[in-house]
Amino acid sequence: MSEIMRIETIGQMVQLAGFRELKHPLVYTLDIQDFKIPNSFENVKLTTGFYSIFMKDANCAIQYGRNTYDFEEGVLSFFAPGQVTTINSESESKNGWALFFHPDLIRKSALGKNIDNFHFFSYDVHEALHLSKKEEDILNDCIKKIEFELEQNIDAHSQNLLISNIELLLNYCQRFYERQFHSRSDHHKDVVTTIEEEIKLYFEQNFQIDQGIPTTKYLADKVNLSPNYLGDMLKKETGKNTKEHINDFVVEKAKNLLLGSSNNVSEIAYELGFNYPHYFSRLFKQKTGVTPQKYRELNN
């Protein structure tokens, strides 16, 4: 396995890459034209200790996990601390920007408490956000406000204003992703059908006996999506995330087994892939309002 280069701080990145001076230790913006790849970074696996957002509108190949995405139009991609990326030497972009911010900046803020709700930081690169010109303009304005603050002398308001503008940018991205889900609705309906078929097939083949209930990652891999993107997309399309789709199927199957077999509740739980019957009983009551045994008694 190739070695992974770990870059802990934004200052370390700036020094290693030879970027312009750092004006704030926890926030940094960069014109994408200045994002030149130093020899030490070429085709090397990198992981950082900070959040990164890239807006690009030209060919710029970045590999994340198993996927490579060539940015040939205005798109936004997000990377959370600890994600492994590979930046290829042929990467080049003419317009756009990059924003980097360290978790320490937001740690004690409301954004710090809610940052995990911005699921797009764990989407795969091929699930990048495609922007309209109007959307680009809005985000560019957010970046200009952040850059304005970075140009000022640090005072009592600096941190709050930086955090507020980063949060504003992220909230717009959340809205724009919802628009993207809506605009791709026809394709996503096919994904919903595939997910439902894959859950059904999983139990028909009795995979749950050895492997347990299907995971969100298992289903996401089936449709070549990241677990968080799949969950958000399903929520937008159906009102239920991936786990809820799995649980609904399990409960419906459990109802059939409770009424169509003489197996006791524990045996049915194991047959459905639960290692512990009380987990099954808790899920069943949560979904139906009664225990499995009570459901059997009421319907026999």
Rank of each mutant, 00 (worst) to 15 (best):
N247W: 00
L219N: 01
K243A: 11
G231I: 00
L201R: 15
Q211I: 11
A254S: 09
K285M: 05
T215D: 04
P292Y: 02
T238I: 10
G289E: 12
Q205S: 15
K222A: 13
N206R: 13
K240T: 02
I213Y: 06
P214D: 08
Q208F: 02
P277Y: 02
V223Q: 05
T242P: 03
I209T: 08
L234V: 02
L272F: 02
L257D: 07
E237P: 00
F274Q: 00
N264R: 09
Y218A: 08
Q205L: 15
E271W: 00
K253A: 14
I268P: 03
L259R: 12
H278A: 11
E204L: 15
R282F: 07
T238R: 07
L230M: 08
H245Y: 04
T291F: 01
V290Q: 10
L234A: 03
N224D: 12
V265M: 08
Y276G: 08
N224E: 11
V250P: 01
Y279G: 01
V250Q: 03
N241P: 14
Q286G: 06
T216M: 05
G231D: 06
N247H: 08
E237Q: 10
T216C: 13
F280P: 01
D210G: 13
L259W: 11
K285D: 01
K217M: 14
N224V: 11
T216N: 14
G231R: 02
N264E: 06
S266H: 10
